Simulated scan of single mutants.
Amino acid sequence: MTTRNDQLPRSLGDIVGQLTALQRQIDELRAQQPDMSAADAVLPPLDADTSRWPQTTAGGYTAIARCSSIRHGSALRLVLDTAATSGSTGSVRVIVAGTQWGPTVAAGAQFDWTAPLPAQVAAAGRYDLTVEAQRTSGTGIVAAQTRLIRNIP
Rank of each mutant, 00 (worst) to 15 (best):
M1K: 07
M1I: 10
M1C: 15
T2K: 03
D6E: 12
Q7T: 15
P9C: 01
R10D: 12
R10C: 11
S11F: 07
D14K: 01
V16P: 00
G17K: 05
L19M: 15
T20Q: 14
T20S: 11
Q23L: 14
R24E: 14
L29T: 00
R30T: 12
R30M: 15
A31N: 07
A31K: 10
Q33W: 02
D35I: 04
M36D: 12
M36F: 13
M36Y: 09
A38I: 04
A39F: 00
A39L: 13
A39P: 01
A41S: 09
L46D: 07
L46Y: 13
A48I: 07
S51L: 13
R52Y: 08
R52C: 03
R52M: 10
R52Q: 09
W53G: 05
W53I: 01
T56C: 04
T56Y: 05
T56Q: 08
T56L: 05
G59D: 09
G60E: 12
Y61V: 01
T62H: 08
T62C: 07
T62D: 07
A63T: 15
A63M: 01
C67R: 06
S68L: 09
I70Q: 11
I70A: 09
R71D: 06
H72Q: 12
G73I: 03
S74C: 09
S74K: 02
L76H: 08
L78C: 10
L78D: 04
L78G: 11
L80T: 03
L80D: 01
L80S: 04
D81N: 15
A83R: 02
A83F: 02
A83D: 01
S86G: 05
S86R: 06
S86I: 00
S86N: 06
V92W: 00
V92K: 03
V94D: 02
V96Y: 10
V96C: 08
A97N: 11
G98N: 02
T99Q: 14
W101G: 07
W101R: 09
W101M: 07
P103I: 03
T104N: 03
T104E: 14
T104R: 02
V105I: 13
V105A: 13
A106I: 01
A107N: 06
A107M: 09
A109S: 15
Q110M: 14
F111N: 04
F111H: 05
W113C: 06
P116G: 14
P116N: 15
P116C: 11
L117P: 13
P118C: 05
A119T: 09
V121L: 07
G125V: 05
G125N: 07
R126G: 09
Y127L: 13
Y127V: 05
L129V: 11
L129K: 00
T130I: 13
E132N: 08
R135K: 12
T136L: 04
T136V: 02
G140T: 05
V142P: 00
A144R: 00
T146W: 10
R147E: 10
I149W: 14
I149C: 03
I149N: 00
N151V: 01
I152K: 04
P153G: 12
P153R: 02
